[in-house]
Simulated assay, not measured.
Amino acid sequence: MKAILMTAVGGPEVLSLQEIDEPQITSPTEIKVKLHAAGVNPIDTKVRRRGVFFPNPLPAVLGCDGAGKVVAVGSAADRFKPGDKVWFCHGGLGREQGNYAEYTVLDQRWAAPMPVSLSYAEAAAAPLVLITAWGALFDRGGLEAGQTVLVHAGAGGVGHVAIQLAKLKGARVITTVSSAQKAEFVKALGADHTVDYKTEGGFAEAVNRLTDGKGCDLVFDTVGPSVFEESIPVTAHFGRLVTILEPGALNWGEARIRNLLIGFELMLTPMLRDLDAARDKQIAMLNQCAEWIDQGRLKIHLSNRMALEDAAEAHELIEAGHTQGKIVLTM
């Protein structure tokens, strides 16, 4: 089968389209999937630049997100049958094969039925960002109806679904953007207020104005250290500040005075640490999101659909930043 191999640690040029053997079912509860699309996420580029998480030798197939059709099942697999469409976040970290390939094999527990209203490309774009946003907003952030949440980079992959999940919860959503075009995009997703941090010279003053100086009950940082630090004064006293990145060295004094709860969201932890109960919960998240998607209450936006052989270019686009929605590779 065709697959994109990470042949070394480095830039996008280390990604190479090659022919490799198709994976085979080796456990009774596994399913084999013909992949139709693979999501491209920032974690893929970080693994490529820094190395895989496990001590297995290169080459490796990257790509955590996938969607496709079941073509074979193990003798004890009873959740799916050949012909079923599935989506999942599995592999791509250096142990199990990732999804930049034409086929993959995984345990049936880690796949979920694909939303019937989505294309393979849309479905492949969704699992990692949906689980990340859910975990940050609800599990770590404790978001409740009537509360105010600030979602940073609302037009991005995680941000654009976080806005929608927060609105489904009944929250008021403020989000940061970098252009008028992105402001219109996030408003169409349900954002109540947008802050263009480029034209307004930052976001803190605007957010405090929108909250009458009280700050937001929850701030969700998807950007990094400087934004995390600048978010502390716009988080309400006794509020929550959740990040998907490392905040770096900073002065925690104001966070302490405000009695903030600081949370980290890394949806890959259950896969990295083999926490099966936590992965089961993630599958439940996907099942609920599938229901909302099929009801037309949750949408996945694709900025680029690219061919498998264009994986290096996809990585370049991700690393350039400011992608609106998601990028996928199609087979």
Rank of each mutant, 00 (worst) to 15 (best):
I4H: 01
P12R: 04
E13Y: 01
S16Q: 15
L17W: 06
E19G: 01
I20P: 10
D21W: 12
D21H: 12
T29E: 11
E30Y: 07
G39Q: 03
V40A: 04
R49M: 10
R50W: 12
V52Q: 14
A67N: 12
A67E: 08
V71N: 01
A72K: 12
V73E: 04
G74R: 02
G74F: 09
A76K: 13
K85V: 05
K85C: 12
H90R: 02
Y103W: 09
T104F: 10
T104Y: 06
R109I: 03
W110A: 08
S119N: 01
A121T: 07
A126I: 11
V129F: 06
V129I: 13
L137F: 13
F138D: 04
T148V: 13
V149M: 09
G154S: 14
G156L: 08
V161A: 04
V161D: 00
K167G: 03
K169Q: 15
T176Y: 15
S179H: 01
A183E: 06
E184R: 14
A188V: 06
L189T: 05
G190L: 01
A191H: 07
D196H: 05
T199W: 04
A206Q: 15
N208H: 07
N208P: 06
T211H: 03
D212M: 11
D212E: 13
G213H: 12
G213A: 13
C216R: 10
F220S: 05
P225I: 14
S226V: 15
E229R: 13
P233A: 02
V234C: 03
F238H: 09
R240L: 15
I244D: 04
L245E: 14
E254R: 08
I257H: 02
R258T: 00
L261T: 15
G263Y: 03
T269E: 03
P270R: 04
M271K: 03
M271R: 08
R273F: 10
A278Q: 12
D280R: 15
M285A: 13
A290S: 14
R297F: 00
K299Q: 14
K299G: 02
A307P: 00
D310P: 06
D310V: 11
A312I: 06
H315I: 02
A320K: 11
H322F: 10
